[in-house]
C-alpha cells in the first residue's frame, strides 16, 4: 500500500514556532498571528482573543494565497510572495514561509505596514530554519492498522449518534 507522508510538526518545532509567534505579536502589537498549511489547515496561532473561526480563516486564507500565486503565473510574474488586504479596522497580511506553510497576521490600522513587512521577513527566516530542522523528529506517525480500526469504530459511533446510519 502506498504511504503518503505529509507535513509533520513535532513538539519541539511547535514550541519554537509558538515562542517566535508570541514574540512577534508583542513586537507588532497585532491581534492574531497564525501558521497554516498551504492546504488550508491551521497549525498554531498566537492570539489574545478566542478565534472560533480558525478553520474558516485558514481555509480561506490558503485559498486566497493560492489564487494570488496563480495570478502571478498568469501575469508572467515569478511569484507573489505575500497577500495584503486592507480594511477599515483590521488588515490581513499573509506571507509564505515555505512550500507547505503560510504566516497569517491580522493587525489594526495603527500598526505601520512597513513594520509588519520588516518583522515578518525576519521571522520567516527563523521559521524556515525551525521547520527545516528535523533533529527532534523521532515521533512516529501513529497511523497504523490498529489506529485505522480504532478510528473506524469512532466514526461508526459519531454517525450512529446522529442517526445518520
Amino acid at each position: 500500500m502506498t504511504t503518503r507522508r505529509g507535513l509533520i510538526i513535532t513538539d519541539q518545532q511547535l514550541e519554537r514556532c509558538d515562542q517566535l509567534l508570541w514574540e512577534l505579536k508583542g513586537l507588532l502589537n497585532c491581534t492574531f498571528l497564525g501558521l497554516i498549511s498551504t492546504a488550508g489547515q491551521p497549525i498554531t496561532s498566537a492570539s489574545s482573543d478566542h478565534h472560533p473561526e480558525t478553520f474558516s480563516l485558514a481555509s480561506l486564507t490558503a485559498s486566497a494565497f493560492a489564487a494570488t500565486r496563480q495570478l502571478a503565473t498568469i501575469l508572467d510574474e515569478r511569484e507573489f510572495t505575500l497577500l495584503f488586504n486592507e480594511g477599515d479596522a483590521v488588515n490581513l497580511h499573509v506571507a509564505q514561509v515555505n512550500d507547505q506553510v503560510l504566516l497569517l497576521i491580522t493587525f489594526g490600522r495603527d500598526v505601520p505596514i512597513g513594520q509588519v513587512r520588516l518583522y515578518t521577513q525576519r521571522s520567516i527566516a527563523v521559521l524556515q530554519r525551525i521547520l527545516a530542522d528535523h533533529s527532534g523528529d523521532d515521533q512516529q506517525l501513529v497511523v497504523d492498522d490498529a489506529y485505522e480500526m480504532s478510528m473506524e469504530r469512532e466514526m461508526d459511533q459519531v454517525f450512529r449518534e446522529n442517526g445518520s446510519e
Binding site: 505529509g6 510538526i9 513535532t10 513538539d11 511547535l14 498549511s37
Partner: peptide, 11 residues
C-alpha cells in the same frame, strides 16, 4: 498529505 501536529495532538 495529512498534517500531523504532534504538539496539538491532531491529524
Amino acid at each position: 498529505m495529512p498534517l500531523v501536529n504532534f504538539a496539538a495532538r491532531e491529524i
